[in-house]
Simulated assay, not measured.
Amino acid sequence: WYEYNDTGDPWAPDISYRDGTYWLYYAVSSWGTNHSAIGVATSASGLPGTWTDHGKVFSSGTTDTWNAIDPTIVRADGKLWMSFGSYWSGIRMVELNPRTGKAIEGATVHHLATRPDAPYAVEGPAVVHHGRYYYLFASYDACCSGVNSTYKIRVGRSTSVTGPYVDEDGTPLLEGGGTLLLAGHGRFVGTGGESVFRDKGRDVLAYHYYDSGTPKLGLNELSWGKDGWPTVR
Rank of each mutant, 00 (worst) to 15 (best):
G228M: 07
L96I: 07
A41H: 11
R187C: 00
T100M: 12
G192Q: 13
D167K: 05
T191E: 14
R115Q: 15
L222C: 09
S43F: 12
G55T: 09
G85S: 03
K226T: 07
L174G: 04
W229E: 02
G190V: 10
G101I: 09
V109Q: 06
G85A: 05
D14A: 12
S160Y: 09
P116C: 08
S89R: 07
P48Y: 03
W31F: 15
H129N: 14
W31Y: 14
E221F: 12
D211N: 14
G49T: 06
S223G: 11
N220Y: 00
G176P: 05
C144M: 08
N148D: 15
Y133C: 10
S43M: 07
L136S: 00
H208E: 11
S45Y: 13
G186E: 14
Y209F: 15
G131E: 11
Y135M: 05
S30Y: 02
A183W: 06
K152W: 08
E194A: 15
A138S: 08
S16A: 11
N34P: 04
N220H: 12
T179V: 09
T231L: 00
V204D: 06
L80Q: 08
G106S: 10
L80K: 00
G177S: 06
S43K: 05
S59T: 13
G39D: 05
T171S: 06
T114Q: 10
D9L: 12
G163N: 00
W88L: 01
R75N: 10
W224V: 11
S139K: 01
S29R: 10
P230G: 03
H110A: 04
L182M: 12
Y207G: 09
M93H: 07
G177A: 04
D9V: 13
P116L: 08
P172L: 11
P125F: 11
H185G: 08
L180V: 13
S160K: 13
T171F: 08
H35S: 10
V155E: 06
T72F: 11
I91Q: 03
E95V: 14
P48V: 02
M93C: 05
P230K: 01
G101N: 09
W66C: 01
A126Y: 10
T159W: 01
R18K: 13
G8N: 05
E3Q: 15
G186W: 15
K226F: 00
A107V: 13
P10T: 10
K216C: 15
S59Q: 14
P10R: 02
